[in-house]
Nucleic acid binder design. Structure first.
Lengths: 337, 337
DNA sequence: CTGTTAGCGCATTCAT
DNA sequence: ATGAATGCGCTAACAG
């Protein structure tokens, strides 16, 4: 493997000069810099990140900790993080808990402590007090994405506000019988988020003097299938049916849509459905939703940390990220009957 | 930051002993090992991966190169890779091209050469000859997942076989007018795969003496929306309509389903639809499909490389990964008319 | 079974 | 503007 000495020797200069030239530091004549760059290119030389880390203290890598990868929000946010990191010349190392709580310990006590990263991004996780403490002792800069962890800085939308927007829209259309599909707390995903959205749902009902019927508050685990099953049970309940359903995520809204379709309940004539996310499938499905961009949130968070690593002042409270109501074909005024 | 010397000094032993004890090497008495383990735990000591790399030559990390993260196959496969790596104590560093071809150069010429990884997994990408050469010169063990790159080893299902199974099933049901939605070549994703599946489609038609009508071969870019639009155009064509559609992926099959629904074409009575993947939404949607497990493919590939890093003989041709026809509610014999 | 020593490949002083 | 020397924190080879 070709090292810095190979380049230095080939040019008859010192390794210090090669190092400086390659990193764009001052104190190198334009001529020598050109020669170094060319020779490095020719030899295919790139500095070893490990050696550079040892000598400089910087790993030029950032870690991302998440409960699982294969979920719309997470993979989109990862994409955004990676985009920002790559632009800054950083690498991304991903620590997934893989959906189970089993290797949490490993991750927290082994991998993350390996001094392989300069900063850590934590995606929507509920942390135990010990984990939180471990994380905070880990010295490096960190921030949470898409969740809310007390004691850490969080980059996310205003979950309560987004839910309120959805509810006000339904109520503004004239709906009075509104059900809510909330996300679950599986795998420690987003403990706070589904709760914040549910509270906004309740508050909106109360503010407008509407009933909050317990049997109309169902749980969908943030998943299509679970939500479809829960919605099926909801629709099969005897008595009055809701005229609108506010789902805490688009994937769950799809489940509601499908359960309705299978029962011949027409959307939006007989039932309005609204979600949160603006998932890739929302537009083709005609789903009204509150859009958020996990990708932008990810890159924002990554840039935040990147900036602080370069000496920018620490931002104590990152601003809420934008959300926006997107009206499509799944919502309409309630049936006049 | 606490180093190996801190542990050694606290115990009055040498750093070598600490190193050996912590890594489970022989030549350490049970008593000393116990003390070392306890003290390391107490001090929160974990070896620096960079220092360990420099001294041992192993990074204990593996790289994954993929065109983008936010797509069912990729994020699932990543999950599988991570699972296998974590079990072996390896970290995963992810290099995404982010959907554009723009930073390909950076990835190939900078990041991957940084000596941060011991091996590389390449997910479904089409590589330029230069990239292929660069990759092969990169010395470390590599393997492709879910695609086919000539010159590299590939871990994937038998794409032709899977497509054939789908076609034979439709034909066995009595269908003679069968359309195909093939994936596209966007972002260099899977150049070979959509083609292999299309060829199996053609071959099946020919084998059974059925027409391959050019206007029934459409392209869906491996996406819901694009596929829905293409299917809409297909259904709106004048003249005879196909009685079955074989989509090269489930997401594209969903698009076909939706386009049909919007036109009042009943599935499966008037139209049968089959996909490939067994996407998370396939079961709730009742989609008949050919199942594959990207997660298992990912972990298989990771374990393959892991094994070779530990001295296992190099497997020249990894076996095909399993696929399986899953019959649900979207397929039936063609209308008798 | 345990300790000593010599690098691993760079970035970074301090000289010049 | 450039070079020489030092050390980052660990593993491995060698001694004992």
């Amino acid at each position: 493997m070709t090292g810095i000495d190979d380049v230095a020797r080939a040019l008859g200069v010192s390794t210090a000069t090669v190092s400086r030239a390659l990193r764009g530091l001052p104190g190198v004549s334009a001529a020598t810099r050109g020669k170094v760059l060319a020779k490095a290119e020719e030899l295919g030389y790139v500095a070893s990140s490990s050696a550079a880390h040892l000598a400089s203290g910087r790993t030029m890598a950032m870690g991302v900790l998440l409960p699982l990868i294969d979920r719309w929000y997470f993979s989109s946010a990862l994409e955004g993080v990676d985009r920002a990191l790559r632009a800054a010349g950083y690498d991304m190392v991903v620590f997934s808990l893989g959906g189970t709580g089993l290797n949490r310990d490993r991750v927290f006590h082994r991998s993350m402590l390996r001094k392989r990263i300069d900063a850590l991004l934590v995606m929507c996780m509920e942390l135990t007090p010990e984990e939180l403490a471990a994380l905070q002792q880990l010295d490096y800069p960190n921030v949470t994405i898409g969740g809310f962890v007390d004691g850490l800085r969080n980059v996310s939308i205003d979950d309560g506000g987004a839910a309120t927007d959805a509810m006000e829209y339904l109520i503004g259309l004239g709906h009075t019988r509104i059900a809510h599909v909330r996300g679950g707390g599986e795998y420690g995903i987003e403990f706070a988020v589904p709760q914040q959205r549910e509270e906004a749902y309740r508050a909106a009902l109360e503010r407008h003097g509407l009933d909050a019927r317990p049997q109309w508050l169902i749980t969908g685990e943030f998943r299509f299938l679970e939500s479809k099953l829960a919605a099926a049970r909801l629709f099969d309940q005897p008595g009055e049916r809701p005229t609108a359903v506010f789902a805490s995520s688009d994937e769950m809204a799809f489940g509601v849509l499908l359960a309705a379709q299978e029962r011949g309940i027409r959307v939006p004539d007989e039932l309005s459905v609204i979600g949160i996310d603006d998932h890739e499938f929302a537009e083709p499905m005609g789903l009204t939703t509150v859009r958020q961009s996990p990708e932008d949130q990810g890159s924002y968070a990554a840039e935040l940390l990147l900036g602080e690593l370069q000496g920018a002042p620490r931002l104590a409270t990152p601003p809420f990220q934008p959300h926006e109501l997107i009206i499509r074909r799944s919502t309409a005024p309630p049936p006049s009957s």
